[in-house]
């Protein structure tokens, strides 16, 4: 759906020359700043986002994640590289085509909501349709139905600034959905909210996107959020993508020390699945273990937390099955070992 290849973004007057120097001499970020007075925002990013998936881009502030995502609707022009969304080469769009593309294909949600304070909630939600030139009654009907989806149906006539932060961000989400875009870009949408509201909105968002099935690029600096929301996660550092994978991939096989440090604090209970905890049937039998017929059985993608609950009540090891075959065994000691490994790192 979204194909990003070789995207570079350098800020500064001499960005072309700096990019040439980076490519030919391989100089680093600080040297580029020193020699060309050019800041590297995004460095050689390649990624593919599948249709309907929630793709998290994660990194600390200054890692280039917001910069990267702003290329998808060309709020920023890349210095080099190409971005294709649903077959459209975004970088080649003319100004008019770009406006229509932004309006129809992409909806964006912003960290600080970015609502128009002098307009009512429903007018804010209807804004993309207004820009498209939809007549007033039609766009208000559409906006009202979307507002109902985010459970703000009764608030349409209030001014945006009268709402709480959480509600404002729901308005922001409704506005992004109003034009029924194929792609949602969410730029740290829940970062400005307090933790309780944030959890609530994350859950709501996950439910909502399960039914809407929009391709979503979700930026966050919070790994817990990325794990909770994302199907896949890309971790960025200094403008580069250092690892792409599912939450489990990243937690189990961090690409480098930086990622390892990052994931150290994450709770393994929700992320780890049975196939990562188990020992194979052969290994189990080789070490003299036996299988009882009444042993509990679980599929291979069951999270660790379910296995723990089972292991508390059952003394016998849990048999893990995949495609109807028994593939492995999880004992209490396997579970405990997994947990302690996670704890040691953190």
């Amino acid at each position: 759906m979204i194909e990003v290849s070789g995207v570079w973004k350098l800020f500064g007057d001499a960005s072309e020359a700096a990019l040439a120097a980076i490519r030919s001499e391989g100089i680093g970020k600080s040297e580029v700043l020193e020699r060309f007075n050019v800041v590297v925002g995004v460095a050689d990013v390649n990624l593919d986002v599948q249709r309907g998936e929630i793709f998290c881009v994660m990194g600390l502030s200054g890692s280039g994640k917001s910069t990267l995502v702003r290329h998808f609707n060309r709020l920023l022009d890349p210095t080099a590289g190409s971005i294709t969304i649903d077959g459209t080469d975004v970088t080649a769009l003319s100004p008019t085509a770009l406006r229509s593309f932004r309006n129809k294909t992409i909806g964006m949600v912003f960290q600080n909501f970015a609502l128009l304070p002098h307009r009512s909630v429903i007018d804010n939600v209807a804004m993309p349709l207004e820009i498209r030139g939809v007549n007033k009654n039609a766009r208000l009907r559409q906006a009202a139905s979307i507002l109902d989806v985010v459970e703000l149906g009764a608030w349409g006539n209030k001014f945006a600034h009268e709402l709480s932060g959480g509600m404002q961000q729901r308005v922001g989400l409704a506005r992004a959905l109003a034009a029924d875009p194929d792609v949602l870009l969410m730029d740290e949408p829940f970062s400005a909210l307090d933790p309780l509201i944030r959890r609530q909105l994350q859950d709501e968002f996950v439910r909502l996107s399960a039914s809407l099935k929009k391709t979503t690029v979700f930026i966050t600096h919070d790994l817990d959020e990325a794990v909770r929301v994302g199907d896949r996660i890309a971790i960025m550092r200094d403008g580069r993508v250092v690892q792409i994978g599912t939450a489990e991939d990243i937690v189990m096989n961090p690409a480098d020390d930086y990622v390892a440090d990052f994931v150290a604090g994450i709770s393994r209970l929700k992320i780890m699945r049975a196939h990562a905890v188990m020992q194979t049937i052969d290994a189990w039998q080789a070490s003299g273990g036996s299988l009882t017929a009444d042993a509990p059985r679980q599929p291979a993608d069951e999270p660790l937390s379910t296995l723990i609950t089972l292991a508390i009540d059952n003394d016998s090891p849990i048999v893990i099955e995949e495609d109807g075959r028994d593939v492995g065994v999880v004992t209490r000691s396997d579970i405990l070992r997994t947990i302690i490994e996670g704890a040691e790192v953190s």
Binding site: N73, L75, L98, R99, S100, F101, R102, N103, K104, I106, G107, M108, F110, A114, L115, L116, M127, P128, I131, R132, R175, A179, L185
Partner: peptide, 8 residues
Amino acid sequence: EAAVSFGA
């Protein structure tokens, strides 16, 4: 920026 992102 938000307005621009919606094609204004």
